[in-house]
């Protein structure tokens, strides 16, 4: 159970990215956050694992206060929360295997990991994670030798290495074409069915309908809608975001 309570974020330059956002995410949900670019989706996801510190409000995860955790506690919380990024955020010059193994850093022996030494069981775990996303044969390639879809699968494998309870996915398919988008989201769906809570930001309504169990909509940093995916149809979408949003959405497909 993740509880987000009255979270606001104001950046040093004065931009108010989040304004008093509250909602709960039950275990096992596929929660989708929708909104136009700049609506605060990325900031919200990063506040959950505190890559960005919220200015106000509280976030509780299973009654642990994430917002007031100290550095060691925070690392412990983070290793339970996997994250997948729009730009994949792989280390391009490192091998795929090293990228996947780096997802295990929160568990690994700090000193051995600095030397780049990993126990065999971790390597096996990494190969298994790669096998799950269907690219085991790429383990020893350099990350930048892979296509965009494959790189995102490495990103998911990296998150899997954390044995996460929650996966935060920040626009995981925004850099991919529609067919690849579905294949990536299907992997997330499978993980969700296995009991991992998924919180995913998207901006395509079709994808929201297909995958979400619940939806939170943001506009200018404020929560403007919370409910089931069925409740948010095209008319509602248009009502929230206006005419031009319709065009953006249409143009994207």
């Amino acid at each position: 159970m993740l509880r987000i309570q009255h979270v606001s974020k104001t950046y040093p330059n004065g931009t108010q990215a989040l304004k008093d956002v509250s909602f709960d995410v039950a275990d096992g949900e596929f929660m989708v956050v929708i909104g136009l670019s700049g609506s605060g989706k990325s900031t919200l996801l990063r506040c959950i694992n505190r890559l960005i510190d919220p200015s106000e409000g509280k976030i509780y995860w299973n009654d642990t206060d994430v917002t007031s955790a100290n550095a060691a506690e925070l690392r412990n919380i983070r290793r339970n929360i996997g994250m997948v990024f729009q730009q994949f955020n792989l280390v391009k010059r490192s091998s795929v295997l090293t990228n996947v193994l780096s997802g295990r850093l929160g568990y690994a022996n700090p000193w051995l990991s600095l030397l780049g030494i990993w126990p065999q069981e971790e390597k096996d775990r990494a190969l298994k994670a790669l096998a799950r996303v269907g690219i085991a044969e790429k383990a020893f390639s350099r990350a930048d030798a892979l296509s965009g879809g494959q790189q995102q699968r490495v990103g998911i494998a990296r998150a899997l290495m954390q044995e996460p309870k929650i996966i935060l996915a920040d626009e995981p398919v925004a850099s991919l074409d529609p067919v690849l988008s579905h294949s990536i989201l299907q992997y997330l769906e499978v993980l969700n069915k296995e009991g991992i809570t998924v919180i995913c930001s998207l901006h395509f309504l079709d994808l929201v309908h297909r995958y979400a169990t619940r939806v939170v909509a943001l506009k200018d940093g404020m929560k403007v809608f919370e409910g089931s995916a069925k409740e948010i149809d095209r008319a509602k979408f248009k009502e929230i975001y206006g005419e031009e949003a319709q065009e953006v959405r249409a143009a994207s497909f």
Binding site: R75, N76, L90, R93, R104, Q162
Partner: peptide, 24 residues
């Protein structure tokens, strides 16, 4: 990007430098 990703896995500062900065 990779720095953010490695930090999000719960890596400490040194590990982040080792896995996200040095390879680059």
């Amino acid at each position: 990007g990779p720095i953010e990703a490695i930090r999000a896995t719960g890596a400490n500062w040194l590990q982040t430098v080792r896995y996200a900065v040095i390879p680059q």
